[in-house]
């Protein structure tokens, strides 16, 4: 859904540029406005903190983006976030678990099973992903509450490595979460934009029927998308548990709305009208910036929801209107 503009016309190209990077402009304006009210907002350590706090929502949104690029949705993402976090905590509680790294590896491997369940109900049986993943979501969160008895998992004996991902700082100022986030964005961006795999995912999202006719194995790519999504979202859960130093089976319950907001906002950025990794990352950054800025302003935290909603509607509304006027 690229915007049609007559080539060579300067104003057209400028307009196209503005639309493409509109979200980044919003990000900057919002940042400048917060700095005017609270000068310390623009301090390097604060900006790094914001980047760090984007990590969990951002990584979750990137996982979701893989599925959304193919034109599907994964409503089980919130259950996957809780599951990832609780699994790693439960594994660490097992006596004789040799290392944290191993627990993380096993968790990620188990997470792929949820992706395969989504794949089974959508790709094999043919239930629309919107409905199928919702059934999986209810089921998974039920199982999760059964396993954890609905209570928080916490253990004083967890090693320091458990808290490394979510709480440590490199060189005293750079949160590990910020570094992890940038790494995940970089890998996901490269995968979706510069590999054959990513191009095929996009092709499927634009037109699954044509994709099948030109010989793309749609089922196989969708399977990959669902599996990658569940693993990446599970990883976000691991980070959140590491940050909180406890695992709550209700951890992910409210996250699906923020995650979807980030993906939807992201679709207005870079590849206008399409879900893309860079857009989701910038959108998650904007949401984190808003909540941090509003906290620093000292006004009631509930303004955050109001402002988030307004930004979501303005950004998407503006892009929708411009696109409509372009396409006639």
């Amino acid at each position: 859904m690229e915007i049609q503009t007559s080539n060579g016309k300067k104003s057209g190209r400028f307009k196209k540029f503005i639309i493409r990077y509109f979200l980044l402009i919003v990000l900057l304006i919002v940042g400048i406005m917060f700095t005017l009210f609270v000068p310390s907002f623009a301090s390097p350590s604060n900006l790094l903190d914001i980047l760090g706090s984007t990590c969990i929502t951002g990584i979750m949104a990137i996982g979701m983006t893989f599925v959304m690029i193919t034109g599907e949705i994964d409503f089980a993402a919130s259950a996957e976030l809780s599951l990832g976090g609780c699994l790693v905590a439960a594994l660490m509680n097992i006596k004789g678990m040799p290392s944290y790294l191993l627990a993380v590896m096993i968790t990620l491997a188990l997470m792929s099973l949820v992706g395969l369940a989504n794949k089974l109900i959508h790709v094999n049986i043919g239930v629309p992903s919107f409905i199928g993943t919702m059934a999986v979501s209810t089921f998974v969160s039920g199982v999760l509450r059964y396993v954890t008895n609905g209570i928080v998992i916490f253990n004083m004996k967890w090693p320091d490595s458990f808290r490394f991902l979510g709480q440590a700082y490199v060189a005293g100022v750079i949160p590990v979460m910020a570094i992890v986030f940038i790494l995940v964005v970089a890998v996901a961006y490269f995968t979706t934009e510069y590999t054959k795999f990513g191009m095929r995912l996009r092709a499927i999202g634009m037109n699954p029927v044509t994709s099948r006719h030109v010989g793309i194995n749609v089922k196989r790519y969708k399977t990959w998308a669902f599996t990658i999504c569940s693993i990446v979202v599970g990883f976000a859960g691991i980070i959140q548990v590491s940050q909180l130093n406890m695992a709550d089976p209700y951890l992910g319950d409210a996250t699906i709305i923020t995650c979807l907001s980030a993906c939807m906002l992201g679709a207005t950025f870079y590849r206008v009208g399409e879900f893309n990794v860079l857009g989701s990352a910038v959108a998650a950054l904007l949401l984190a910036e808003l909540s941090k800025g509003i906290t620093m302003l000292g006004v009631s935290l509930y303004w955050r929801n109001v402002v988030q909603g307004i930004v979501l509607l303005i950004a998407i509304g503006t892009v929708s209107m411009i696109r409509k006027s372009h396409n006639g």
Partner: peptide, 19 residues
């Protein structure tokens, strides 16, 4: 029965019905 039993059953019923 605990709360999760409802979630599990609900998930199964939806999955079977729509499948």
């Amino acid at each position: 029965m605990p709360e999760y039993a409802k979630d599990i059953l609900q998930g199964i019923i939806i999955a079977v019905a729509v499948s």
